[in-house]
Simulated scan of single mutants.
Amino acid sequence: MLADDSASLWAALERAGGGRICVIADNAGRELLPDLVLIDHLLDSGPASQVVLYVKPQPYYVSDATMTDVLATLERLRAAPSAHGHAIGRRLHHAMASGAFVVRTHPFFSAPLPFHDIPADLRAELSGATMTILKGDLNYRRLVGDQLWPPTTPFTATTDHFPTSVTALRTLKSDVVTGIDVTTVARLDGTEPAWRTSGRHAVIQVRL
């Protein structure tokens, strides 16, 4: 973990207590499953009164999560042999029925544009959320502008355009990265030249 703002994330959610949290998904399959577990935790433990999960209307890459993937994964959870997995699936099913858990999409999520260019209707949807949590490498690149920033560039400086507080949960698989301290950059550049793309490192970065 090259940057870990998880304490700031949980503190911000606890202060807000019961607001709307948006989650922008990345991949289906084994990545979507923990996304749903996180959403259940946010609803069940109190930080969120509503979670809105945004998926793509159709895959941008073959693995991208869509509405069909969400429904299929929920059914797998409800049918899980473990009591814990079954309970999560049951709670999320009830939350979807009550409106506490909402799944939405928008054509922008399959467009080749940075989040600087969020259209007005989607910006209005996101505005007012306590926090938006973005998953994955591509969403990170779209968030910070997909530019080859010096890696010590503050994450906050590249995300101040976003309409809500924002958290990026990302495994590094591309050269685009911000918010890494100078000592860590020097160490990795000297010992692991491919650290930005190897998939061995991750970040949890928050801009409030």
Score class of each variant (00 low, 15 high):
residue 2 L to R: 12
residue 3 A to D: 05
residue 3 A to I: 06
residue 4 D to V: 10
residue 6 S to W: 04
residue 7 A to K: 14
residue 9 L to P: 02
residue 10 W to K: 11
residue 12 A to I: 01
residue 13 L to H: 04
residue 16 A to S: 14
residue 18 G to N: 03
residue 18 G to H: 09
residue 19 G to D: 02
residue 20 R to N: 11
residue 20 R to Y: 12
residue 22 C to A: 15
residue 27 N to L: 00
residue 29 G to W: 08
residue 31 E to Y: 10
residue 31 E to A: 05
residue 33 L to A: 14
residue 34 P to H: 13
residue 35 D to M: 11
residue 37 V to D: 02
residue 38 L to G: 08
residue 38 L to T: 07
residue 40 D to N: 09
residue 40 D to I: 07
residue 41 H to V: 10
residue 42 L to G: 06
residue 43 L to Y: 10
residue 43 L to N: 01
residue 44 D to S: 14
residue 47 P to L: 06
residue 54 Y to G: 00
residue 59 P to I: 00
residue 62 V to I: 13
residue 66 T to M: 04
residue 66 T to C: 11
residue 70 V to E: 02
residue 71 L to D: 13
residue 75 E to M: 06
residue 83 A to T: 13
residue 84 H to C: 08
residue 84 H to I: 13
residue 85 G to P: 01
residue 87 A to W: 08
residue 89 G to F: 15
residue 90 R to E: 15
residue 91 R to F: 11
residue 92 L to Y: 01
residue 94 H to E: 12
residue 96 M to K: 07
residue 98 S to H: 03
residue 99 G to R: 01
residue 101 F to N: 02
residue 103 V to T: 12
residue 104 R to E: 00
residue 105 T to V: 06
residue 106 H to Y: 02
residue 108 F to N: 06
residue 112 P to D: 04
residue 112 P to M: 01
residue 114 P to I: 12
residue 118 I to V: 08
residue 119 P to R: 03
residue 121 D to S: 00
residue 122 L to V: 01
residue 123 R to C: 07
residue 124 A to H: 04
residue 124 A to D: 03
residue 129 A to C: 11
residue 130 T to S: 03
residue 133 I to F: 08
residue 134 L to F: 09
residue 135 K to D: 07
residue 135 K to T: 02
residue 136 G to N: 01
residue 137 D to V: 03
residue 139 N to L: 12
residue 139 N to V: 06
residue 139 N to W: 15
residue 142 R to K: 07
residue 142 R to T: 00
residue 144 V to Q: 07
residue 145 G to A: 05
residue 146 D to S: 06
residue 147 Q to D: 10
residue 152 T to W: 14
residue 154 P to K: 01
residue 156 T to V: 14
residue 159 T to C: 10
residue 161 H to E: 03
residue 161 H to Q: 02
residue 162 F to P: 03
residue 162 F to D: 05
residue 163 P to E: 00
residue 164 T to W: 10
residue 167 T to A: 10
residue 169 L to M: 13
residue 169 L to K: 08
residue 171 T to Y: 14
residue 173 K to Y: 02
residue 174 S to N: 09
residue 174 S to C: 11
residue 177 V to T: 15
residue 180 I to T: 04
residue 180 I to C: 01
residue 183 T to S: 05
residue 183 T to K: 14
residue 183 T to F: 07
residue 188 L to C: 06
residue 188 L to V: 03
residue 189 D to H: 04
residue 190 G to H: 13
residue 190 G to R: 09
residue 190 G to A: 15
residue 191 T to I: 13
residue 193 P to R: 03
residue 195 W to L: 02
residue 195 W to S: 07
residue 199 G to V: 10
residue 201 H to W: 09
residue 204 I to M: 14
residue 205 Q to Y: 06
